[in-house]
Structure formats: structure tokens, C-alpha cells
Amino acid sequence: MRNEDKNKIKLTNEKREEMISAIKNYFLNEREEEIGDLAAGLILNFVIEELAQEFYNQGVFDSYKYMNDRIEDLLSIQKY
């Protein structure tokens, strides 16, 4: 498996369809534009390929920070 394949975000078909529908609804409600499945799918692909890694990395960092804070709390219950 290539390294870039390993790092690629994968969606189930069901989740992908939900996201495509959400993009189509956004364009309709916010921009009063109807776009098709193909256009919405291309937008989704762009978000996944170009932007999602930043959101993922932020989630990893937030989890790391949260866990470190909990470990500091754990050390506070030591008995001397």
C-alpha cells in the first residue's frame, strides 16, 4: 500500500452520499443554486484531498492536549 493511500481519508458509500446531499442542500439554501451529484462529489473530493488533513490534525492535537491535561490531574492524587 502506498503511503498516500494509507493517509487518505476513506468514507463509506452511505456517509459519502450524506455529505454530497449536505453540499447540495447548502448550495440550494445559501446560494439558491442547484448543483448535481457530480458537482457536489467534486467539491467533496476537493475538501477531502486539500482541507481534511488540517481538520484531522487539529483533532489529533486536541485529543493529545486533552489526554495530557487528564494525566496531570491523575498526578495530583498522589499521596506523599
Rank of each mutant, 00 (worst) to 15 (best):
E54H: 10
E14M: 04
F55S: 09
A22E: 14
D37P: 01
E33S: 04
E17T: 11
K65P: 00
D62W: 05
R16I: 02
E18N: 12
I71N: 02
D73E: 14
M19Q: 09
L75V: 01
L38N: 10
K8F: 02
E4C: 04
E17S: 15
N45D: 15
E33K: 09
E50V: 07
L75P: 00
E17P: 00
L38F: 12
F27C: 12
E18G: 02
I71M: 11
E54N: 11
M19H: 06
S63K: 10
Q78M: 08
K65W: 03
Y56S: 10
G41D: 07
Y80T: 07
A40C: 03
M19E: 13
D62P: 00
G36F: 06
A40P: 05
L42Q: 12
T12A: 11
K79E: 06
I77C: 01
K15H: 10
R2K: 10
S76V: 00
E32H: 08
K24V: 02
A52H: 13
D69W: 02
A52S: 15
L44D: 05
Y64M: 10
K24D: 01
I9K: 12
K15M: 15
Q53C: 01
R31S: 05
S63P: 00
I43N: 02
N25S: 13
Q78W: 09
I48T: 04
E18D: 15
E34N: 09
V60P: 05
S21Q: 12
I20N: 06
Y64W: 10
R2H: 06
L42I: 08
E50N: 12
L74T: 03
R16Q: 15
M19V: 01
I9N: 03
D37L: 02
L75D: 06
F61H: 09
N45A: 13
R2E: 11
Y64Q: 10
L11D: 04
E14T: 11
A52W: 13
F55R: 04
T12L: 14
G59D: 06
L38A: 11
E14L: 09
K8M: 08
E18L: 14
E32N: 12
L11A: 06
L28A: 13
S21T: 11
Y80F: 11
T12W: 03
G59F: 10
E14P: 00
S21H: 08
E32D: 11
V60F: 11
N7M: 12
R31V: 04
Y26Q: 07
L38R: 11
S76W: 01
K10L: 15
E34Q: 09
F61D: 13
I9W: 07
N57A: 10
K10G: 00
N25W: 01
M1N: 06
I43R: 08
K15W: 03
F46M: 11
F61Q: 14
M67W: 12
R2N: 09
L11W: 05
F55L: 15
G36Y: 05
L44Q: 05
K65V: 14
D37M: 02
E34S: 12
K65L: 14
L75K: 11
K65A: 12
R16V: 02
A22H: 07
F46H: 13
G59I: 05
E30M: 08
N68E: 13
A22V: 03
E30D: 08
L51S: 09
A52N: 11
D5G: 00
E30F: 02
L51D: 05
D5S: 07
N57S: 12
D69G: 05
E72Q: 09
L42F: 07
